[in-house]
Design a protein around this nucleic acid. Structure first.
Length: 591
RNA sequence: CGGGGCGUAGCGCAGCCUGGUUAGCGCGCCUGCCUUGGGAGCAGGAGGUCACCAGUUCGAAUCUGGUCGCCCCGACCA
């Protein structure tokens, strides 16, 4: 491709609206352009990158035995009502009227459609297991799209669904998809960590997320550097604290009510009383399936709603509003405490290990000090209720956990029979009995692979694409486009590379070298070939890798062959790294 | 949905507080000259319903009210 014939609208300045590095650079490199909030055009260069990712995904899904198909984005809302997600999914579901009065939805995901298909097509255990996938546009009415291509209302997703007769088949399918995902992201050259994840409203038993570590990530990843434990903060467990020597005073003071007029928040109360927040406890009231429950946490800790939901055995929980709190406890919000509380109380482990704390006094403008858990209120049991923090003990090995931001690019779930039960998708087993299909679902955000690659790999000058995703593998920059010798040499190398199947971009613009170099760095093409009068006089041209500082001079004669061999070396090195990682995974699995 | 910010040429911005000729600047774009190994220089030029609607006024980019759009933080989120 000749640059002069291409559409590559690079930007010198950063558009005011862009903040995240991937957003800024994809915009500046002329890869995307915004149409509206959460809606982006992929310009030719960006579309090529998307295609490269799609091609890799397709190869690996096919290799894993998944069958590609294409389901409609336009879906009857009846299906969503049948599965129960019409309500659960809420406003995120993009609804519209067809033929003026017929309500439909644009698919945010396709469990319903797959299950509908399965109940029509799958009759016998002999047809199972089966995994299908598609690469298709999804729609979600995101309340807040952000960071360019990271969270949009319309995005490209690879979604796969496994159908099996039982949990064993599900586990085999799940493992195959898990492995395919590792291969996909390895091949794309995007760094990632696999974390245990909360399965969320999609339901199901088990789930892993694939995260690109980067500051733009919207999730928090908890990781143990010692044993390799990694989990989404939503899910991360906290290990038993190292048995701290509890300072038990020989003659502890009795608890005592103190006035705290107008002090409602932990910060206000602790500041007012001159007590560290870590020696206070807060009582949070939640509505669990419509009934009030309470959680007691250390003042400086954060409640993990998923943990509380599990402990309480509830389907759904939500913070109680002030009116519900007062109705359930008789106490105005801000002064709640565990002493004498009437609703079911779940106590976080960290609270029980405190020897003295400040709690709400269960009356307006009152708190209670010198409270000792177990003495002043019962502690029948303790739970892990809070979000893991930096430095908390690892649940596996007890070493300190670290926390960092991660961008979710892939997610695998074991759904079980959630959808097949709700929608009646059954097969006949060997004994002729009707049995619900056991399902799994597996998603990759294709756009997020692009965003994640840029987040993980860029410098001051611009994007540094991994070879596998780059819109073009090689860029040729003839420096004097009016010099016949330069242009003949350029064309010769260009044609030789293209004939060998290499994606080549030739910057034939009549621009000064500085302009070309800066644009080339910005769009991030891995290998740059510079052909100039000066070098040609000595019979040489220059090669430079985008991710390396130094350039290399090679003979102009046989340059194409030299470039091809360097590309081949780079690709086989990458393939070797992927193979090494796969071996490491296999070794870890068998051990 | 709560909080904050912004909307003036393709991009980045000034002007607005204190209303007053033809609304400016830089980059980019077009033409010519010149230059050519890291975003050159000179000259000429094109490009704007000042987001939209209503109001105040002799007069509105500027003041008032409303609407819409976009960004950020939070809530939310397979």
């Amino acid at each position: 491709m000749r640059w002069s014939k291409a559409l590559i609208p690079t930007l010198k300045e950063t558009p005011a609206d862009a903040v995240a590095p991937s957003h800024v650079l994809l915009l500046r490199a002329g890869m995307i352009r915004q149409l509206g909030a959460g809606a982006y055009t992929y310009l030719p260069l960006g579309f090529r990158v998307l295609h490269k990712a799609v091609a890799i995904i397709r190869e690996e899904m096919d290799r894993a035995g998944a069958l590609e198909l294409l389901m409609p984005a336009l879906q009857p809302v009846e299906l969503w009502k049948e599965s129960g997600r019409y309500d659960d999914y809420g406003d995120l579901l993009m609804r519209l009227m067809v033929s003026k009065s017929h309500p439909m939805a644009l698919g945010p995901t396709h469990e319903e459609v797959v299950t509908e298909m399965a109940r029509g097509l799958v009759r016998s255990y002999k047809q199972l297991p089966l995994t299908v996938y598609q690469i298709q546009t999804k729609f979600r009415d995101e309340p807040r799209p952000r960071f360019g291509v990271v969270r949009t209302r319309e995005f490209l997703m690879k979604d796969a669904y496994s159908l099996g007769t039982n949990v064993q088949q599900l586990n085999v399918s799940y493992d195959a998809m898990f492995e395919a995902y590792c291969r996909i992201f390895d091949r794309c050259g995007v760094p990632y960590v696999v974390v245990e994840a909360e399965s969320g409203p999609i339901g199901g038993d088990s789930s892993h997320e694939f995260m690109v570590p980067c500051s733009t990530g919207e999730d928090k990843v908890i990781q143990c550097s010692s044993c390799g434990y990694a989990a989404n903060q939503e899910r991360a467990e906290i290990g038993e604290p190292v048995a701290a020597t509890l300072v038990v005073e020989s003659n502890p003071a009795a608890c005592q009510s103190v006035p705290t007029p107008g002090k409602r928040t932990i910060r206000e109360v602790c500041e007012f009383l001159g007590v560290p927040e870590s020696e206070s406890a807060k009582l949070l009231v939640y509505m669990a399936d419509g009934k009030p429950i309470a959680a007691l946490l250390r003042g400086d800790h954060e409640l993990n709603e998923a943990k509380l939901r599990r402990v309480a055995g509830a389907v759904a929980i939500a913070p109680a509003d002030p009116a519900e709190v007062e109705k359930a406890t008789g106490v105005p919000i801000g002064f709640l405490g565990p002493i004498g509380i009437k609703i079911p109380l779940y106590i976080d482990r960290a609270v029980a290990s405190l020897s003295r704390l400040v709690v709400g006094g269960n009356a307006l403008d009152v708190h209670t000090v010198n409270v000792i858990p177990g003495r002043d209120f019962p502690v029948p049991a303790v739970y892990d209720l809070r979000n893991a923090q930096e430095g908390d003990p690892c649940p596996r090995c007890g070493k300190a956990l670290a926390i960092k931001a991660g961008l979710e690019i892939g997610h695998v779930f074991k759904l079980g029979t959630k959808y097949s039960r709700a929608m009646g998708a059954r097969y006949l087993d060997e004994a002729g009995r009707e049995v619900e299909i056991v399902m799994g679902c597996y998603g990759i955000g294709v756009n997020r692979i692009i965003a994640g690659a840029v987040e993980a790999s860029h410098d001051k000058a611009g994007i540094v694409w991994p070879l596998a995703l780059a819109p073009y593998q090689v860029v040729i920059a003839p420096l004097q486009v009016k010099n016949d010798a330069v242009m003949e040499r350029t064309a010769a190398i260009e044609h030789a590379l293209e004939a060998a199947g290499v994606d080549v971009l030739t910057d034939d613009r009549d621009q000064r070298p500085g302009v070309k170099f800066n644009d080339i760095d910005l769009i991030g093409i891995p290998l740059r070939v510079v052909i100039g009068e000066r070098g040609l006089k000595d019979g040489v041209i220059e090669l430079k890798w985008r991710d390396q500082a130094a350039a290399e001079t090679i003979s102009a004669e046989g340059a194409a062959e030299a470039i091809l061999s360097r590309l081949a070396t780079a690709m086989s090195r990458r393939a070797g790294e992927c193979a090494d990682r796969q071996r490491a995974r296999n070794a870890a699995k068998s051990s």
